[in-house]
Design a protein around this nucleic acid. Structure first.
Lengths: 188, 188, 188, 188
DNA sequence: GATGAATGAGGATTCATTCAT
DNA sequence: TATGAATGAATCCTCATTCAT
């Protein structure tokens, strides 16, 4: 009759990790994560096994959340450009309004601690988004290259755009819209 | 009158750091760097003071080398598109032929250990390259946004392109050329 | 529910520190302390956080022990001179019989690693002793100066006396008694 | 035809050491001493051989300077009390006006780096002062104990008095004069 | 399952002294 | 003699993971 694991604890650890990685990088100590989550140090390991697994869980969590934010109100009935524009706007909006999550996700994305499995799982969430990108690029300069490359280009352009929007709040919308036009031209 | 600092030693430490960071990430131990460079551990600190300074020196060194590689044979008499294309090709060629340096530079670029000073110094090397980008973007969708944003977009697109070229050697040129077309359209 | 901290371990670390500081000074290595205490090096930090905290704990511990030794059999019903004499004799006896503790305490007392908090805590233990000194000095040359100064004078005179008693065991009692007379005259 | 050692350099190193030890304790690095003295690091060792020798030289220098300050205007024709009083006043005056030197001397005095030789040399400077103390104590409670003990008592009482004078400038003279009366009574 | 003490291999940095120039 | 680079043992502290309670 083991006590069931608490979803709250799991979530608290996840959130604490997101915060600490944003603040201190991937070197953030698990003991500090536990303290921030107001959870015993040992619990981090009962819930996630190893630090690497914890980081992977955070990665998947953030990717999933991001995919939801992007796709939630996607106007499926509109043309490709409108859909891509929705993707671009909701994605950057997420990044600008969740800078902590954005920073942590950026760090995790380039980390070699994230497994191929986690990356694949993240891809799955992004399926519909990738499809939009694929359609948008289907007649342009990138029509003949692997879709993964196109997707990566879009992702990296969004990332850079979010960075500059965050840094230059006054011109955030101008940057965002110009960035979208650049993307649209790049794909067409 | 004392023994002068040895340029060779300095260089050996720098190279060893580049290799180890590529292999193990920014957490690479200074003791291992010393061993790889075949110098005593203490010498790392004689030459660079702290690990952070060492990493900054590596960053500046690689940025400088990269700028040289890009600008060395830049055809200044050609039109903007040709110059941008030369930039794109020489940049990706550097990355593909120096994957170790590329990986280390990528890690350093997103690290918060790199100071604003180092980034500024790197910017200086890149001056002429930025000018080409500025010209290329002067009539397109990005004409009204900060040049820093445009430069960052180019840099991130090159990075992504190098990654895929390295991973998919057989199609490297196709990817590279499609990537360039995408960039050209993005800027125009 | 976890393993509770072991009072024995804490105490072993404290004792090992006292010994090593007496032997090697405040520069004694925490690793050597651990070895002497037969605990893993990491445990020193589990129990005391930093070396400075460890030293402060030793200081407070020794001051407390000393206060106990002095005040334990203090004849509260006797006149001031007898009480001061008891203080002097029990204090010097503690120092002569615990030269290791005495030396360590002497080093800590002049160290700038000891915080104001620790010194205040030590003062508290010494309260009754200070009161005796205050009474003894209340009609003499030192009646109008801060009691802290008077207390410091007494402390420093005891320290010097213990040193000479230790060095010259054969005349220890003569020195001790002469020293007490000197103190008594100084205060009266 | 070796270049003669420069008295200026020697002196600069000595002064720099006094300052740094006052600021950082005996752990002050010789490299920092050299920097403060505006002298190459190696020179510290050409002039003093080892760090321990340097510290001993500082000790002897300060003791000598102190002895000069105390004895310079000693009124040899006055009675013992007046001479002792002159000793007390000039000594505390030196300490209050040279807090850096005082702190360094205090640290060195309790250090085990100072050799017996250095201590003996210092004693020699203090000869006339010891003689005054001896005379002052010749009929009191301390008449039968080793003169070294009496001297040490005087020294430690002066030290404590200087500390409180420095800390409580407004009452410095009151403390000084009360301290002297206490000393006089202790010796008589 | 819950808890937090236990562990010891690293990690970055310091430093007195030596010695090449 | 003057100079400052060279050296590597030593230092304090961190940390992921395990495990006794």
């Amino acid at each position: 009759m083991a006590r069931p694991r608490s979803e709250e604890k799991r979530s608290a650890i996840l959130m604490a990790t997101i915060e600490l990685v944003a603040e201190q990088g991937l070197g953030a100590a698990t003991a500090d994560v536990a303290k921030r989550a107001q959870v015993p140090h040992g619990s981090v390991f009962t819930y996630f096994g190893t630090k690497a697994e914890l980081l992977n869980a955070v990665y998947v969590e953030l990717k999933s959340e991001l995919a939801d934010a992007i796709l939630e109100r996607m106007p499926d009935d509109r043309n490709t450009r409108d859909q891509l524009r929705h993707l671009w706007i909701s994605w950057t909006a997420w990044g600008v309004s969740s800078p902590t999550k954005r920073r942590t996700l950026a760090q995790l994305s380039v980390s070699d601690q994230i497994t191929e499995d986690s990356r694949r799982a993240a891809m799955t969430f992004a399926g519909r988004a990738v499809e939009i990108v694929r359609r948008a690029a289907s007649n342009g300069a990138l029509r003949a290259v692997p879709i993964a490359y196109v997707g990566a280009l879009v992702e990296t352009m969004v990332g850079t755009t979010m960075d500059f929007m965050t840094r230059d709040r006054d011109n955030a919308e101008v940057i965002r819209d110009a960035g979208f036009e650049a993307l649209w031209h790049a794909l067409n």
